[in-house]
Every structure is written in structure tokens, then in C-alpha cells.
């Protein structure tokens, strides 16, 4: 078994915004471990990248941190957010923590909002619900935060099916901005987006971290995206943390074969595209 190491030891300690120790996720009935003894820590204003192949347990780890695992799965370990253990809180206390404390940017942008309501109604309802704002204040806040991620206020009149995946991802980031989330967990936010949209989403996330000092956990297949934003990286494989550390160290001198394979695959793909681009 691999004992997960917290990325960058300085992150573990009293200064950490979130500290997860020995997180395990298992199936209730079979007892099968899906995430095994993973630890991580993150400070305010920093970004932690979680990379790994499909099925390595990245999304489950994120949902365990949020206390939102699917039915039939159970998490154990300790998830300390600002000193409070998320896993031992009641559902009511966890709900109070979500949004303003820990926010989420979902992978499936096109299905992340209620298809029957305009984005304006949904975002302002969320702000009114969570921040106790009036209708006009919530609307103004929504317009302001959308502008921060490069979207115009017209988006509020649109239904989810009228926007692109990139726009929807940025709406989610704007929502986290509006809620003033202290930690955002972005689960593969650039998957299934075109290159331009990917770039815009990453810039929006960068805004979140730099301007608001929000901590960001970025889960991605895309090592380029992680390199762009994350200072620390955690590599998952088969539910285990196989490597962690500073991003530049992990990507430049990978120690584990899985990390080496991920880095090599990305390098090969880049070289192939560069080659085809050159001969075109």
C-alpha cells in the first residue's frame, strides 16, 4: 500500500485551509476500496492539482471532500476544513459549509444547471438563499461576477441549453466567485471543451485564485492545465496516491512509473501535433 504524502510539507499544519488525512472511500456492501489512504493539504490562495487516469479515484476523492458521495459509498478519514471535520458534521452543518466555504465546479457543465430555468433565476436564487440577499442585490452580484469571468449580463436571461460548455463552466466559476467560496474544487473543468474555451476557463479559475485568494483543487487529465495553475500536484492511480510534490518537480522529474507515463504521453502527443502542424 502506498502511504500518500501531503503535497509540500509546508501545507500540512495549522495554516492549511483544508487538510485531509487518510481518506478512504469504500463500497458499503462489498467493502472494496476505491480511494485508499490519500492525504492532502491546501492553503488559501494556492492551487493543488490532482491528476491521474480515468477511474483512478479523482472525482470520488473530490466528492468525499465535499461530503457528497453517491449512495452505496462511504468515506473514512479526516477532512479538516478551517479546523472542522467535514466528515463528522451533520448534513445541516455540511450544507452551511458548502457554497461559501467549499464550492464545486462540475465536470459536466451542460447538465450542471436546471434545464427548466434561466441561469439568472438559478444563480440569483442561490445567492439569495446562501447570502441572504434581496432580489436586486443578488442580480447585481450575479452581473458583477459574470463580468469577472468575461460573460455579459445577458447570460442571465438564457437557458442552459442556449450556452456553450465553456460559458457554462465560467458561470459556475462566477457562482463560486459570488458566493465568496474559500475553496473551490474543480472536477475536470476543461474536459470536452475546445482549446479556446479551455483557455478561458483556466483564466477564469486563475482570476478566482489570484484576485480572491481562493484555494483551488483542480482535477484534470490535462497536465498542461494543471501545470498552468497548480503549485502542487498529487498523482492518483487505482485509488492510491502514487506521487505528490511541487508541480515543476513532479512534471520535470517524475519518480513513479504512472507519473512518467502521463508525462511521456503528453510529451508524445505534443510532439506529434507539433510535427503535423509543421508538415501541414
Amino acid at each position: 500500500m502506498t502511504q500518500a504524502i501531503a503535497p509540500q510539507n509546508k501545507a500540512v499544519g495549522n495554516t492549511s485551509l483544508l487538510e485531509a488525512r487518510s481518506i478512504c472511500v469504500r463500497e458499503r456492501i462489498s467493502g472494496r476500496l476505491l480511494v485508499n489512504n490519500v492525504s492532502l493539504a491546501i492553503e488559501a490562495g494556492s492551487c493543488l492539482g490532482i491528476v491521474g487516469e480515468s477511474g483512478s479515484g479523482k472525482s470520488l476523492l473530490c466528492r468525499a471532500l465535499l461530503g457528497l458521495l453517491p449512495k452505496g459509498l462511504a468515506a473514512s478519514g479526516t477532512v479538516l476544513f478551517e479546523g472542522r471535520d467535514v466528515l463528522s458534521l451533520s448534513e445541516r452543518e455540511r450544507r452551511a459549509l458548502r457554497g461559501a466555504g467549499i464550492s464545486f465546479v462540475a465536470q459536466q457543465a451542460m447538465t450542471a444547471y436546471d434545464p427548466l430555468l434561466t441561469l439568472g433565476r438559478q444563480i440569483t436564487a442561490l445567492f439569495r438563499d446562501r447570502l441572504r440577499l434581496g432580489r436586486n442585490e443578488a442580480h447585481d452580484l450575479a452581473c458583477t461576477t459574470l463580468a469577472r469571468v468575461g460573460l455579459e449580463a445577458q447570460v442571465l436571461d438564457r437557458y442552459p441549453h442556449e450556452l456553450s460548455g465553456g460559458q457554462m463552466q465560467r458561470c459556475m466559476i462566477a457562482t463560486s466567485l459570488g458566493l465568496g467560496s474559500r475553496l473551490v474544487i474543480a472536477d475536470e473543468p476543461t474536459t470536452a471543451l475546445d482549446a479556446k474555451s479551455q483557455y478561458e476557463v483556466l483564466l477564469a479559475l486563475k482570476t478566482l485564485v489570484r484576485e480572491r485568494g481562493t484555494a483551488l483543487i483542480l482535477v484534470s487529465h490535462d497536465l498542461g492545465a494543471v501545470q498552468m495553475l497548480a503549485e502542487h500536484v498529487l498523482v492518483l492511480n487505482g485509488g492510491y496516491c502514487v506521487e505528490s510534490g511541487l508541480a515543476w518537480q513532479v512534471f520535470n522529474a517524475p519518480r513513479h512509473k504512472v507519473t512518467r507515463a502521463l508525462v511521456r504521453t503528453r510529451a508524445d502527443l505534443s510532439a506529434r501535433f507539433a510535427h503535423h502542424g509543421g508538415t501541414a
Binding site: 450544507r95 457554497g99 462540475a106 447538465t111 450542471a112 442561490l126 438563499d129 446562501r130 458566493l179
Partner: peptide
């Protein structure tokens, strides 16, 4: 569905 998970993750009532 995803929008339910997202709403729960944002702490909606």
C-alpha cells in the same frame, strides 16, 4: 442528475 449534485454542492436548501 448532475444539476442536483451541483445544487447540493453549492449548499442549496
Amino acid at each position: 442528475q448532475d444539476f442536483v449534485l451541483y445544487a447540493r454542492a453549492q449548499g442549496r436548501s
